[in-house]
């Protein structure tokens, strides 16, 4: 009876150890990807710095108002593991949140070409001529300045026309952020697996001691 219990616990321990090793391997793989992506990001940033100038891509360019575009959702699973999930904050939320504090924008609210206000006489004359021609110019809805949020994209901190390499750096770092959430999940999983494995190991040793003690008693009898 004791031997089978010991065998069972050994098998369970092996299973846990294999799972733990798999997690470590996965962690190492993701780490390698993260390192490559970061390197790519730095390389692109250096290229952008070369074309824009040394001081143009530095901490001096950070905006005075910074709002996060990415957040992490952390939820604990039943096994005690933590699951981190990176999510992009939708622009709508940040705009609605900003409305209360936004500075009043002086100047025209509509962008683009505006029509001159005409007198009634001119309008009636025009109407008759317009009826003759069947084609009408399509109405373009005016774009309101408040709908756009130029401060939101960190690329804008570094200028309006930024080089492609800076955009590449941004996309690399975005990938790194997503990957870092996955790595954080894996790290907690590895630590939980380690604790679990140590607990099982101790259980196995106590069981082993018990069975060896029982066997010695049998031999003595």
């Amino acid at each position: 009876m004791g031997v089978t219990e010991l065998e069972e616990s050994s098998l369970l321990l092996d299973e846990k150890l294999l799972r733990f090793m798999d997690q470590l391997e996965l962690l190492e793989e993701k780490r390698a990807t993260l390192n490559t992506l970061i390197e790519q990001g730095w390389f692109s940033m250096s290229k952008a710095r070369y074309s824009m100038g040394n001081k143009q891509v530095s901490a001096l360019q950070y905006a005075s108002e910074i709002e996060p575009l990415i957040c992490v959702h952390a939820r604990s699973l039943d096994t005690g593991k933590m699951d981190f999930c990176a999510e992009r904050v939708s622009q709508k939320c940040s705009i609605s949140g900003k409305d209360d504090r936004s500075i009043e924008d002086i100047g025209p609210q509509e962008e683009g070409v505006r029509k001159r206000i005409k007198s009634k006489k001119d309008v009636t004359k025009k109407e008759t001529s317009e009826d003759a021609s069947s084609e009408k110019a399509p109405e373009v809805p005016p774009v309101r300045k408040s709908d756009q949020n130029p401060q939101q994209d960190p690329l804008k901190w570094f200028g309006i026309l930024v080089p492609q390499s800076l955009k590449q750096a941004q996309s690399s770092f975005k990938q790194v952020i997503d990957l870092s959430a996955e790595i954080a999940t894996l790290q907690t999983a590895v630590l939980i697996a380690r604790q679990d494995l140590m607990h099982s190991m101790k259980e196995k040793y106590t069981l082993q001691e018990k069975t060896s003690g029982a066997q010695l008693d049998k031999v003595a009898d």
């Binding site: 530095s58 957040c71 941004q170």
Partner: peptide, 26 residues
Amino acid sequence: GRGKLIAVIGDEDTCTGFLLGGIGEL
């Protein structure tokens, strides 16, 4: 409701890169 932030402690290039990615907050 918004979730949690990602913080960075690093050299200038690391911080600039991650802030470009959109994690920065004041």
